[in-house]
Design a protein around this nucleic acid. Structure first.
Lengths: 383, 383
DNA sequence: CATTCCCGTGCACACGTTTGTCAAGAAACT
DNA sequence: AGTTTCTTGACAAACGTGTGCACGGGAATG
């Protein structure tokens, strides 16, 4: 056979590869400009551009634009080991609390030319594990995780893979993981104090799952606040939903009211649960705030438009995402991060779902209102 | 053997590269299993696995697991020209219509091992262009875009780059771009007919921007429906917001009512605009539905919980995302796609923001209710 | 004018995979 | 037993880019 043994540049590549080869490479640009492609690489890279003469840069850029050249991010990532990609893991984009967080993260990383990939776990631990795996495999430079449970085993996989991770919205209670969250316990204290000020004494908590830090800390904050006010006759009760959903709130509220028909106020662990409570109350013909007052948490979108406008604790979701991004960016750059345990302050938004009731005997709301009152802003959402 | 002349694998790589080198490669696995790395590659690749003996596969897999090997997606993508990545472009994740769409897309692509990257444009055309550019550069295999305007120039960049694109939620009016959307005109017809049935004759449209297909088609549908019912005395009016936001709805509603104080019903182009209208009405002390009835569109989350519960046209957002994903997956695989112009049916959800008013003279609601009535489902959201 | 220095460019290797080709060994058939 | 067929693993060439190193030429200096 007359075939030479060195048949390198023949059509060895599979047909599938050729199809998309319309994409221009650095070599095409070099050919167009009549220079070596390494020169093109430097001319197009802002950090190495100073090595190249200005007119050469101009020539290269002109050719690149003419050919519609776009650098191949995969090749670049492979060579530099930097994918310019971060991952965000949440339980469910459909939950209105998450989109603002993700939005803020995407914004911050877009600013530095990074791309954001998202994944939903629906609170399945193994789906979370699979997601983290896929993202690491994909080469993410960092991860922002909103689904960590307390002492989550999934954390191990991340630190083992030596990839920067920050927890947002939850407290992983791990010394290795920076976190950004709101002061959940404080939030519940605000709610309880507000209700006590309004004369409520039989206060119940409709909480979320206790294996996630938000549910746990909020319940603790609720109990602590009640204990502080025990001298005033504040008596706590609590039921828990299996998840932070409207349905679970509805069920939990039903259980609560059958077991404790005499409560006058509910602190929900979440606006979702609060909406569930509201639905149950409406179904049973119980007036809110006429018969029972209700406080939610997070101030999700439209919580000021529902009936009754929900008194709730606002959570700065966008700020959460922004702060988490700042930390992660610092970690990626290798910059030392000064404060990696950020706890934001919650604010009570007094609206229409809480009513004052007549105090039974002595009135001593004055001394407990002192500290609490400063935290309260009576305002409706403007934006 | 003492020092071969081949000293290639010396420490030539920059220190930055070495840091992360804790990551195991296919070579580590091969060394562990005592075979050539090509064998490892095939043993781990389901499609080529049949070329390898079962016990060898087992050995390779054991080593891979032992070392915690994760294939480098970037290298794989570079070699195969397939990144297993898709991009989703929306205007704003903070708009409650979008998250369910994105969620559905992420789900569908996760099923086939793909990763989803998202980007927000805030309706800036150049930000959209930049985003498309970044995504293509990133090597996405396909794009789902929810921000195309009518005859959007950004489409050109996509088809030129020879990358599959499908438009969702909007109609790009381009022959090259498959699309999945709801029948906007039909939706407005449902609304107008419903109002007419309830006795309304002075019906106004608070519409969105006319350069986006949704705003445009909804206005056209509104006008068409009014024209059909002109014999019954239905008179149309219209004002437009600059964007689909609550604020724009508020302003538009104000303009509408100062210019046309005698209207009795409003068809909003969007639930956001509807909520804006509601806010203006409340501020002015105008009762809804007492004085003015209101119909929204999309049935965003909590639209059944606001006051009054909003009568609106439901949009199957998740279905939108799912259908778009199916089309895009087919395009990526190269499978011919049978129907690439999907138009889903809207459904009217009658709730509390529409009230019947006494008809002025002759009552002939019977004949126009025949066709319309079948489309109406009186139900409140269950989930 | 000769030497030194520096600036700009070209060369070649490496990043970690996938995959066409091929040689060697086992099995099966004549 | 010899030959063919089949199985299995090894080899090496890419994918497109970044970057250390070497080299060439012009300017500056003695």
């Amino acid at each position: 056979m007359a075939m030479p043994k060195k048949t390198k540049n023949t059509k060895k590549t599979s047909p599938a590869l050729q199809e998309r080869s319309s994409r221009k490479t650095i070599i095409d640009v070099a050919k167009c400009a009549g220079v070596h492609w390494s020169t093109v690489s430097r001319g197009l890279n802002p950090e190495k551009r100073h090595l190249i003469s200005p007119e050469m840069i101009e020539r290269v850029e002109a050719c690149a634009k003419k050919l519609g050249y776009r650098a191949n991010a995969m090749a670049s990532a492979l060579r530099t080991q930097r994918s310019r990609t971060v991952g965000v893991i949440i339980s469910n984009l459909g939950d209105p609390v998450h989109p603002p967080i993700v939005r803020a993260i995407e914004d911050r990383f877009a600013e530095i030319g990074y791309v954001t990939i998202v994944g939903n776990t629906d609170n399945h631990p193994l789906r979370q594990a699979a997601l983290i795996d896929r993202f690491i495999q994909q080469g993410v430079e960092g991860l922002i995780v909103a689904t960590f449970e307390r002492n989550d085993p999934g954390i191990a996989a991340c630190v083992e893979a030596n990839i920067p991770v920050v927890a947002v919205f939850r407290d992983p209670e791990s010394e290795f993981i920076p976190s950004v969250r709101v002061d959940d316990a404080k939030a519940m204290e605000l709610a309880v104090h507000h209700l006590a000020e309004c004369g409520h004494r039989q206060i119940a908590h409709v909480g979320g799952p206790q294996n996630v830090s938000t549910g746990y800390h909020r319940y603790r904050g609720f109990r602590r606040a009640c204990k502080v006010l025990a001298q005033d006759g504040v008596a706590p009760t609590a039921v828990f939903g299996e998840a932070f959903t409207v349905e679970e709130g509805e069920f939990a509220c039903e259980r609560l009211l059958t077991e404790n028909p005499n409560i006058t106020a509910i602190v929900a662990g979440n606006d979702m649960l609060a909406v569930g409570c509201l639905r149950h109350l409406r179904n049973k013909g119980i007036s809110c705030p006429g018969n029972i007052s209700l406080v939610g948490m997070n101030d999700m979108l439209f919580m000021d438009a529902i009936a009754p406008a929900l008194t709730t604790i606002s959570t700065p979701t966008a700020e959460l995402g922004t702060q988490a991004s700042h930390i992660l960016i610092a970690m990626i750059k290798g910059t030392p991060v000064q404060n990696d345990r950020i706890v934001l302050k919650p604010v009570l938004l007094a609206r229409d779902s809480v009513a004052a009731i007549k105090l039974p005997t002595r009135t001593r709301s004055s001394d407990l209102s002192d500290a609490a009152k400063r935290e309260v802003r009576i305002r409706h959402r403007q934006s």
